[in-house]
Simulated assay, not measured.
Amino acid sequence: MRIEVITGPMASGKTKSLRAIQTRLEQQGYQPVVISGPAATTQALIKTIAQQFGRCLTVLVDDCTQEQIDAIKHWKMKTDRNGQFADVVIHVAKRADIS
């Protein structure tokens, strides 16, 4: 399992990058969805990510906090010890820090 974090300032195209990945996967016959980080608690977000593994090996998550990203990375370490999910890629767009 690989986690790709997309970072940048507000309005820098992070969500647009996720949508482009989604479009590319749809053209290949997959049905990925973009999961919204703020729509769920951290544990519910991780559960939703895990549920996507049966649909597509690429999971897209938008607008995550650093806490959610850290939790996803920790979950990855616990979950993928035997390499069972080696082909899974999780693209996570980090919420822009508002200063």
Rank of each mutant, 00 (worst) to 15 (best):
R55Q: 15
L18G: 04
R2K: 15
I49P: 03
G13N: 04
P38N: 13
K94D: 00
I3M: 07
K47R: 13
A40V: 00
T79F: 07
T41S: 15
G13M: 04
C56H: 03
Q28L: 14
T58D: 03
A86K: 03
T65W: 09
I72V: 15
A86M: 05
L57A: 04
D97W: 07
L57E: 14
Q43P: 03
R24Q: 06
I35E: 02
T48M: 12
G54E: 09
P32E: 05
D62Q: 12
A20S: 11
V61A: 04
R95M: 03
F85A: 10
K94C: 09
R55V: 15
R24Y: 07
V5C: 05
A44K: 14
W75S: 11
S36C: 09
H91D: 08
V5R: 01
R24N: 05
M77T: 11
P38C: 14
W75E: 13
A50V: 14
L25E: 05
M10W: 12
M77L: 14
M77A: 12
Q28R: 13
A96W: 03
T58I: 12
G54Y: 07
P32I: 04
K73I: 14
F85V: 09
K73H: 06
Q28T: 11
R95G: 01
S12V: 12
D70V: 11
R2Q: 14
T23H: 04
K47N: 14
G13S: 05
A93G: 02
I46G: 12
P32T: 06
Q22T: 10
H74Q: 15
D87A: 08
A93K: 01
T23N: 04
G83L: 10
T79V: 12
S17E: 08
G8H: 05
V92S: 01
V61C: 06
T23L: 03
C56W: 01
P9H: 08
I69L: 09
V33T: 14
Q51F: 06
D62P: 10
D62C: 13
I90R: 01
I6N: 01
P32N: 05
V89I: 13
C56N: 09
E67G: 10
E67N: 09
R2C: 03
I49G: 01
E4N: 10
